[in-house]
């Protein structure tokens, strides 16, 4: 599966094989998966449960490694990296947005957003300024000291997005980012992801079950039984 618009893809998967061992049996998720995504694309990946969406996202995040094949993102061969290298790569190149926000409830909004910056050689003042800036960008200025438990789902997801972009990664991976939100909040979040894609040139890969959410992407891939069964460009 290739991106027709970019001869040098930002994400390039070739011959990916991945399976899980359950007892004595190995369940194959991907037998020979190819995928190319151009830099600056907003790609939605849809598919039924068990189709391999989460496994694909975990591999793109460097959380899991393929059993075989080439996994290249931004010129880095993730399949050749050890866990420590992948962790370091993740810290500097990728932000992740989760369905259930995955904020630390005991930390304030600003402290949650600041977490990825702790991995960078920045002073406390620099971290605070960048945190305030992205909270302002996602419309949460003045809520720095609020705890996630006192926020609506939409606001928590905005904090989640702020945390994902605060370290200025090139890649945003979104796992059902609107799955836990009402329509209005979901549309706001999707509009924000669109903004980040258009204005800040973030490459976004979004796993979703929601066709309306997929419409915000400029490319939609359907994954079924470990293979891309269908591809269509969004309107």
């Amino acid at each position: 599966m290739t991106d027709r618009h970019d001869p040098a893809p930002y994400i390039d998967l070739k011959g990916i094989r991945k399976g899980y061992r359950i007892g004595t049996e190995t369940v194959s998720i991907f037998a020979d998966l190819d995928l190319a995504i151009a830099g600056g694309a907003f790609v939605a990946i849809m598919g039924p449960s068990g189709s391999g969406k989460s496994t694909l996202l975990n591999m793109l995040a460097g959380i899991e490694s393929p059993d075989a094949g080439q996994l290249m993102i931004g010129g880095n061969r993730l399949d050749r990296m050890g866990e420590a290298s992948r962790t370091a790569w993740r810290a500097h190149n990728m932000g992740m947005v989760f369905q259930f926000y995955n904020l630390l409830p005991m930390l304030t909004a600003a402290e949650n957003v600041e977490l990825p910056l702790l991995l960078k050689p920045l002073s406390g003042k620099e971290r605070r300024l960048r945190t305030e800036k992205v909270l302002d960008l996602v419309g949460l200025a003045g809520r720095e000291k609020q705890y996630p438990t006192r926020m609506s789902g939409g606001q928590q997801q905005r904090v989640g997005i702020a945390r994902a972009i605060v370290a200025d990664p090139g890649l945003l991976l979104c796992d059902e980012p609107t799955g836990d939100l009402d329509r209005k909040s979901a549309d706001d979040i999707l509009a924000m992801l669109g903004f980040l894609n258009r204005e800040l040139c973030k490459t976004i890969v979004m796993v979703t079950h929601d066709p309306q959410a997929a419409r915000h992407a400029n490319r939609v891939l359907h994954l079924d039984k470990g293979e891309f069964a269908e591809e269509r460009s969004a309107a």
Partner: peptide, 14 residues
């Protein structure tokens, strides 16, 4: 577990 997984996903080390 969830909190550890979150920060590890963000890039926090072992």
């Amino acid at each position: 577990t969830a909190e550890i997984a979150i920060v590890r996903t963000l890039g926090f080390g072992r």
